[in-house]
Amino acid sequence: MPAFTIQAERDQLVVDRLRAAFPDGVVADEQFHDMRCITVRKEVLHPALRLLRDELDFNFLTTLCGMHHPAGAGAEERLGLVVHLNSFRHRHRIRLKAYTAMKDPVFPTFTDLWPTTNWMEREAWDFFGIGFTGHPDLKRILNMEDFPAFPLRKDYPLEDPTREDKDNSMFGR
């Protein structure tokens, strides 16, 4: 089974440091297969990333992407932001998550920490409508400027609406 080397000690160190720095900021802390996943409160995400970068050697931001959880199973509809960090020195990867309610889906920008998040944030805005305050140029990146929706939200239909050749009775839909 392909897996990253699990570094339990460093994982614990990261969690402890985050808990110490943000006493009620860490919401959940889970181990998914080979990677520790720490869910933090929305306000804490930016300072937490700064702390991880400056003090715990996480020099490289691998990805930042959005996520949409529709309402259901007792949870409200919410948007999430997932960040993967990598420490080249310790060969250590970690995942951070934060959720935000639909009515105010805004995070502070991370471009001041890693310029690479510039386009990733634009993508998250384009796909999910997650805003980033302080972003140098927050506009749609992959879709057209005047696109009317946030397409990767679960309620947006995938298929092209202009197709007329699809007979639903043939596809059993």
């Binding site: 392909p2 998914f32 990677m35 996943c37 691998t62 990805t63 992407c65 949409h68 997932v82 993967h84």
Partner: peptide, 30 residues
């Protein structure tokens, strides 16, 4: 569950972040 895996692609780290909710399709794939 959710996993992240990456390989060294032609241009660099090609990663797959897969979130599954147990359904027949991924819940989210980045």
């Amino acid at each position: 569950g959710e996993v992240y895996h990456c390989v060294e692609g032609g241009n660099g780290e090609l990663g797959f972040y897969l979130v599954s909710d147990g359904g027949r399709t991924p819940f989210r794939l980045h």
